[in-house]
Measured scan of single mutants.
Amino acid sequence: DRYEFNINGVHFTIDDAEEELIKLIEELLKRGARAEEIEEVIRRWER
């Protein structure tokens, strides 16, 4: 599934997002994580 979200006006799209990654990102968003922090999480996840 495609997952899309915005952080401070920056648009992100993840194709074939796994449910666990989506939950992790949503938790980070609730905590007010910065875009750079979430980008790093996504990079690590994709390795």
Rank of each mutant, 00 (worst) to 15 (best):
K23A: 12
R2T: 11
E20M: 08
I7E: 03
V10S: 09
E26K: 11
E36H: 07
G9F: 04
R47T: 15
E36K: 07
I14W: 03
I14G: 02
I38M: 06
F5M: 06
I42V: 07
R44L: 15
L21N: 00
H11S: 12
R43I: 09
A17V: 06
L24A: 13
E39D: 09
I22S: 04
N8Y: 05
E37S: 03
D15Y: 09
E20D: 10
I38D: 00
E27I: 12
I25D: 00
E39R: 09
E46W: 03
L29N: 04
R31S: 14
E26Q: 14
W45K: 00
E39W: 09
V41A: 14
N6K: 09
I7T: 05
A33T: 09
D15H: 13
E20V: 06
N8T: 06
L21Y: 01
L29V: 10
F5Q: 02
E19N: 10
D16L: 11
E40Y: 04
V41E: 13
R43M: 09
L28S: 08
I14Y: 03
N8A: 12
A33I: 05
E36A: 10
R2K: 14
L28I: 05
E26H: 13
L24M: 12
A35V: 14
E36D: 11
E27K: 14
F5S: 03
D15S: 09
H11P: 09
L29M: 11
D15Q: 11
L21V: 02
E4R: 02
K30I: 12
R34L: 12
E18M: 02
G32F: 04
E20L: 09
N8G: 15
E18P: 14
E4F: 04
R2W: 09
R31C: 09
E40N: 04
R47M: 15
E18W: 03
I42P: 00
K23T: 11
N6T: 14
N8P: 03
L28P: 00
E39Q: 11
R47N: 15
E27L: 13
I42E: 00
V41P: 00
R47K: 15
N8R: 03
Y3P: 03
E26F: 07
E26P: 00
E27H: 10
L29F: 06
I42S: 01
E46N: 08
E4I: 06
L21K: 01
R43K: 11
I42W: 02
E36N: 06
Y3M: 06
D1I: 15
L24Q: 13
R44Q: 15
T13C: 10
A35F: 10
H11G: 10
E27C: 07
A33S: 09
E19I: 12
R31T: 12
A17L: 06
E37W: 03
D15L: 11
T13P: 02
R43N: 11
D15T: 10
I42G: 00
R44Y: 14
I22P: 01
R44W: 15
D16Y: 10
E39A: 13
L24T: 14
I38Y: 03
K30V: 11
L21P: 00
K30S: 12
I38T: 00
I42K: 02
R2V: 11
N6A: 11
I14Q: 01
D15W: 10
I25K: 00
N6F: 13
K23P: 01
L28Y: 09
F12R: 00
I25W: 00
E4K: 02
F12G: 02
D1S: 15
E26V: 10
L28M: 13
I38S: 00
V10Y: 10
F5G: 03
I25T: 01
G9P: 01
K30W: 11
V41S: 06
T13M: 12
E27W: 08
L24F: 06
T13R: 09
I38Q: 00
G32M: 03
H11K: 10
V10D: 08
R44M: 15
E40W: 03
D16P: 13
A33H: 05
E37Y: 08
G32T: 03
E19V: 11
V41N: 04
I42H: 01
H11L: 12
L29H: 04
K30P: 02
E20T: 09
D1M: 12
E36F: 05
W45L: 01
D15P: 12
E37F: 08
E19F: 11
E19S: 10
R2H: 10
L29R: 07
R34T: 15
G32K: 01
D15V: 13
A35D: 05
I14K: 02
W45S: 01
L24I: 15
G32H: 07
F5E: 02
R47W: 15
L24W: 05
G32L: 03
F5W: 07
E37Q: 08
A33E: 03
D1H: 12
W45E: 01
E36L: 04
I38G: 00
E4D: 09
I7N: 04
W45P: 00
I38C: 08
N6S: 14
L24H: 10
R34M: 14
V41Y: 05
L28R: 06
W45M: 01
W45R: 00
R2F: 10
R47P: 15
E27Y: 11
E18R: 05
V41Q: 07
N6E: 15
N6D: 14
Y3T: 05
I7W: 06
D16V: 12
R44A: 15
I14M: 05
R31E: 10
L21W: 02
L28E: 08
D1W: 06
I42F: 02
E37G: 01
L21E: 00
I25Y: 00
N8W: 06
R31H: 11
F12K: 01
K23R: 13
D1R: 13
A35K: 13
V10A: 08
E26T: 07
R34W: 05
N6M: 12
L28C: 05
T13F: 12
N8V: 05
I14H: 02
E27D: 11
D16T: 14
I42Q: 01
R2S: 13
R44G: 14
N6V: 14
I14S: 02
I7G: 02
V41R: 03
E4V: 07
L24K: 09
I22L: 07
T13L: 14
E26N: 11
E46I: 09
R43C: 05
G32R: 00
E36Q: 08
I22C: 02
R34G: 14
T13E: 10
A17Q: 09
H11I: 12
K23Y: 11
L24P: 00
R31P: 01
Y3F: 11
R47I: 15
L28K: 08
E27F: 12
V10R: 06
R34S: 15
R31D: 11
E39K: 10
I38R: 00
F5Y: 08
V10E: 08
E39M: 12
T13D: 08
E4S: 07
V41H: 05
E39L: 12
